[in-house]
Design a protein around this nucleic acid. Structure first.
Lengths: 219, 219
DNA sequence: ACAATAATTTAGACTTATCTAAAAAATATT
DNA sequence: AATATTTTTTAGATAAGTCTAAATTATTGT
């Protein structure tokens, strides 16, 4: 078994590789973990001894497949717990992070599989991030234009095509933001505009032109 | 904030006082915590410094009101999580303990209040032990033998005296389990056997011998 | 009451994860 | 290429929680 701290380091390294690519530096890890580089070096030695990372002095770090598996398990647990908090316990999506940071370290295979089942095997968390499966596989669901979805689809907004201020301000006004759940209530035949429900709350219309500039993944 | 370890010591001391009464000895704590008396002494000094226990060398230990409050909070969380696991995630009542031992240390007031609400504010856990309220008050409803109740009493089954497999299997067959609501419809004068209704559903008879091995609290 | 036994505490050491300050290696600058 | 700067590592210290072995205090038996 690995300590909470080890798990947190592996998770941080995974996320840094995901966004920065290739290898990760000692300083980057230190910043992400809010700790000092010297402490990171100590931990890297330990993780390398356990064969969870590939580490050569001064050369940066990558995860071994064993280390990556553990990181993905932690991420899976984190995202499932976030989902649970939002869906079942009425947490707002910006309230869940700190609690999920604790819950992700609870060690029980049965627990996490039952939570998964209880939530009906969700594919993405409340922020729209994908939830790895029990084997650590991430379903890299490619985003699609909102205009491609069908009536009654429920999806998560993941991005925009048009990055202009004007467009983003319009989205704000509609109450549309990344991670929002969008349900397509209806597609108007006349102009292909969409009637949508945002986060199970307000219902509004958006034009097909707007829908062509919003990216989303099916939930 | 207190560490997991401190919380576990406080919980152990609370439980020992509950069953052994008065003060608790260093050795008793060591045994309960599966550790060595020397380690206990170290921790007792620390807890005394924090004013969570009353401790004089060689004189045993009691909890301060502050310490007791913390212990009861941990116990509240433990029992609510057990309830959650059994009621919502299909855990068997003998599978929940190890997981609840971990979950009881998750630190979030909102989380535990929402779990409580989600479970509809249960009074007892799956083992029939009372769940302290948010203020740390325990509803000290002592369990009684089912044979002591009167006609038309409605009670909740909280435990058994005989723990043999044979007896538990018999209870299974009757459809009797911990947490069930039992209404005493009649007491047969001839042999003091009971006619009972389980969970407002099926009605059945149980002998006085059986009733003497079932614990319950009045509802 | 006093020796024997049991319970408890002290002393000193170990582990994990952290830190500061200083040294070493890598990278950038001129 | 030589120097300056940044990054990373080493060395040594600290705090929490644990341990063993030895010392101290309390309890028991005769």
């Amino acid at each position: 078994m690995n300590s909470f701290t080890e798990e947190n380091y592996l998770k941080a390294i995974y996320k840094l590789i995901e966004q920065e690519g290739e290898t990760v530096t000692t300083n980057a890890i230190a910043e992400k973990m809010s700790t000092k580089p010297a402490s990171v070096t100590d931990m890297l030695k330990k993780l390398a001894d356990k064969k969870l990372i590939n580490y050569q002095k001064y050369q940066g770090v990558t995860l071994t497949s064993k280390g990556e598996k553990i990181a993905l398990t932690i991420i899976r647990k984190h995202r499932l717990w976030e989902m649970f908090l939002v869906e079942k316990l009425d947490f707002k999506w910006d309230e869940v992070h700190d609690v999920a940071e604790q819950l992700e370290h609870i060690n029980s295979d049965k627990l996490i599989e039952q939570i998964d089942k209880f939530l009906c095997y969700p594919k993405v968390d409340p922020h729209g991030d994908p939830i790895p499966d029990a084997k650590g596989k991430v379903n890299i669901q490619k985003s699609h234009l909102l205009s491609k979805f069908n009536k009654n689809d429920v999806c998560i907004m993941t991005g925009v095509v048009d990055h202009s201020t004007a467009f983003l301000q319009y989205l704000d006004k509609c109450g549309l933001a990344l991670g929002n759940e969008i349900k397509i209530k209806d597609i108007v035949e006349f102009d292909h505009s969409l009637q949508i429900t945002i986060n199970k709350g307000s219902t509004t219309f958006i034009s097909n032109d707007v829908a062509k500039n919003i990216l989303a993944i099916i939930k």
